[in-house]
Design a protein around this nucleic acid. Sequence first.
DNA 1: CCACGCTGTTACCGACCGTTACACAGGGTT
DNA 2: AACCCTGTGTAACGGTCGGTAACAGCGTGG
Lengths: 240, 240
Amino acid sequence: MNALATQTSFPPYSPQSQAMAVAGPIDIDQLSRHVQILRRKLAPGQHAYRAGQSFHAIYLVHAGFLKTCELSEDGRERVTGFRMRGDLVGVESIGLAHYSCDVVALDDSEIWELPYPPVMHACLYMPELQSRLTAALAEEIRNDRAWMLALGTLSAEQRVAAFLLDMARRHLRLGFSARHFLLRMGRADIASFLGLKHETVTRALTRLDRLQCIEVQRREIRLLDADGLQRMAGQGETIH
Amino acid sequence: MNALATQTSFPPYSPQSQAMAVAGPIDIDQLSRHVQILRRKLAPGQHAYRAGQSFHAIYLVHAGFLKTCELSEDGRERVTGFRMRGDLVGVESIGLAHYSCDVVALDDSEIWELPYPPVMHACLYMPELQSRLTAALAEEIRNDRAWMLALGTLSAEQRVAAFLLDMARRHLRLGFSARHFLLRMGRADIASFLGLKHETVTRALTRLDRLQCIEVQRREIRLLDADGLQRMAGQGETIH
DNA sequence: CCACGCTGTTACCGACCGTTACACAGGGTT
DNA sequence: AACCCTGTGTAACGGTCGGTAACAGCGTGG
């Protein structure tokens, strides 16, 4: 367990961002003295957990890329979010006996298993931990609400633009280029997340390409005119 | 402060429900020994708080009916939820210096102000409190996600059906009739919440009326065929 | 009493996006 | 190579929902 990264191994996180990623500041070294942290590796397609499995841990994404899927009894399904390094996964199931959704790796990933309730017990020894966890939960809510606003008020093309900007911001926060990145998910997953059909996503992407806002080649994205995208998505600030 | 209701003054809550209302089990009597709880009354149209005001408290809805609104810089707006007795309000802003959304009373309401961070401090003396708060936050996330699924996969008419069923369930949980109730919000608010236009909501309601599923007269709703609504909304279980 | 405003209802038209279909590219397997 | 399978791109068509407008119901206040 000595290979566990300390807090300083994480790139800096900006607090005003919408994506979750509040878990970064958690002092994993110290936490690992109180709870047994298991490292799990996942291949693309593998589940971190499925809806219905007994809830026993939350997870910190250490590497890779995952999606969370909400399911209904009658077979409807929807991607509710994408998770990358620094994001917490599984918090939505706290208070339940069983996980309430599916989490699937879209790429080779590594997630750190934080057993629950032991993590909550560790709050007694790490006063910071509780407020960090609570703040992470609250940020998750804000994140979901921000997307609800977007999905309810933006057109298909605007949603795709907003989605690309969100991806760009999150890549940037992890120290990668915001101008040029690879989508780790297929059109169908993007469409599901945005409440669209995959053909519509394709159309929007090719149109944004024709408008010289971006350059698309399958999953490779290049942002040519981030400001144009911002205006299109109806958001004020610019990514740097 | 002696008029503060104790835990037993709340109607029973069913844990498997999707609406928030986890706050019920909080022992307000005991909590009021540790933090100063202020009772605020609101008239219809009054704000509990607005986005941008400094964050200093979360609220427990004691009576009435409120809506939470998400705003964007460019003026878009969306109702993200409706709150009634037993619901917690303001938790989405935990960890921020300022509230992130608007909360508006739709009816004469009374909300109990729980100052923050003092409430978190009180967790030291009330070990139950922390897990209850965390569970409430988690349930809020699940609630949002369940609606994301619905809004992304259901047609306009199905969404309206699902909305009515949700209202019915929540009325029932508070001890009111699930078969016959009054909507406290206008068509525009329902539409905003469901990602539709108010005319579309109207059309859906009149169609459900013609199908004999419900009886509508302005804001008065009578459920004639709850099972039919369930099937229409693609949900399994029945409300009793 | 009527004027006025707000909310809700209905109709018509048009646009956006879903539906369907098919072609093509890439990766893996035999 | 040839094959499949999945993911992606493109196009034609149609339905659902949005846009706009006019009207009705209800409460308020002059």
